[in-house]
């Protein structure tokens, strides 16, 4: 075994035994395009093996540039990216062989058949032919029946599936999905979420960018929010909701109020437009007021309760709030 083979062996052992903590390690990377356009600024991020990481951000935030830098489609201006312990610039063959990429658009050659284009990708990534594996991938994406169909004859949703099949064709350990469900119908979106969860079970690390915050909320383990080339935060999804999320308790009253009663005025409360309801805004961390506390407080004011509802802020609300705060700075 030569020295490179030995290092590969050690890294493989590390990964298997859980010693290799990060599948992707990004250290202070920046990307400046022509005309001094800063696409990424000092991004540092670690992604663990087998996790689903969602990268959120508005258009032009730098999500695609970040993915492109990791996959080798563009070169970072400064900083270091490691995939499975290997430098993406110096050991690009090793890092790229681990990665499957599903791009945002439909960059496919129209007159190729489904199976030929998928086989091409497998070969391009250095893997020898494996018809049974290709069949399995196409069947799992419901493309087997369409295997001889030219790409031009496929619907948008099917083309998206072809791109996923291509990305999976060389059995990657990391899968990048750039806006995977944009332009696909609800059923296919659900199928894709199921597929991503299935890949995670098989140990594949999945990084996805998305505009559908609901998507991140449904499937991601951790979330990173990117805006104007800067990584604003990286947090476990549950922790993020806990930390930044708010609960609103809405108390519908039998009577109409003119103003907020003095006894509850100290709390974070506001009246509905029709003045028939009081809303209590409860932070998940700072103010741990319970539902029974709310009922007790209302009872002390002498008001009669008609109905009570609680709503919790979604990841989308949190995302919008964080972006809005950043924009105001």
């Amino acid at each position: 075994m030569n020295s490179i083979g030995f290092i590969e062996h050690i890294l493989f052992q590390c990964r298997v035994s859980g010693f290799l903590k990060y599948m992707i390690s990004i250290q202070n990377i920046s990307k400046v395009y022509d005309q001094n356009l800063k696409a990424l600024e000092e991004i540092s991020l670690e992604i663990e093996p087998g996790e689903i990481f969602a990268l959120l951000g508005p258009n032009g935030a730098g999500k695609t540039t970040l993915i492109s830098s990791i996959c080798g489609l563009t070169r970072q201006t400064s900083g270091l990216i490691k995939v499975s312990g290997f430098d993406t610039l110096e050991d690009y063959k090793k890092t790229r062989s681990l990665i499957g990429l599903v791009p945002q658009e439909f960059p496919l050659e129209n007159y190729e058949s489904v199976i030929e284009t998928v086989k091409f990708t497998r070969g391009l990534f250095g893997k020898s032919s494996n018809p049974s594996y290709i069949e399995k991938v196409l069947k799992s994406l419901r493309l087997w029946e369409k295997r001889s169909t030219p790409i031009i004859a496929l619907s948008g949703g099917m083309k998206r599936r072809v791109l996923i099949a291509k990305a999976l064709s060389h059995e990657p350990e990391i899968l990048f999905l750039d806006e995977p469900t944009s332009g696909v119908d609800v059923q296919l979106r659900k199928e894709m979420w199921d597929l991503i969860i299935e890949l995670k079970k098989r140990g594949v690390t999945v990084i996805l960018t998305t505009h559908y915050i609901k998507e991140a909320e449904m499937i991601a383990d951790r979330v990173g929010i990117l805006n104007r080339g800067r990584l604003l935060l990286v947090e476990e999804k549950k922790e993020l909701i806990k930390k930044f999320g708010k609960k609103t308790i809405s108390v519908e009253l039998k009577e109409k109020l003119h103003s907020i009663p003095e006894k509850i005025a100290e709390e974070k409360v506001y009246l509905s437009e029709d003045r028939h309801s009081i809303f209590f805004e409860v932070s998940n961390t700072k103010n741990k007021m319970s539902l029974s506390d709310t009922i007790k407080m209302i009872a002390e004011t002498g008001l009669s309760i008609n109905d009570i509802n609680t709503t919790e802020s979604s990841l989308e609300d949190i995302f919008l709030e964080i972006i809005a705060e950043e924009e105001m700075r």
């Binding site: 489609l73 063959k93 890092t95 439909f106 496919l108 990708t121 250095g126």
Partner: peptide
């Protein structure tokens, strides 16, 4: 030129190939 035009050049550029 064709893969550049269709965008499918991304595959070649992200493949483990010199």
């Amino acid at each position: 030129y064709l893969p550049k035009y269709t965008g499918s050049i991304y595959e070649v550029m992200s493949a483990p190939i010199s």
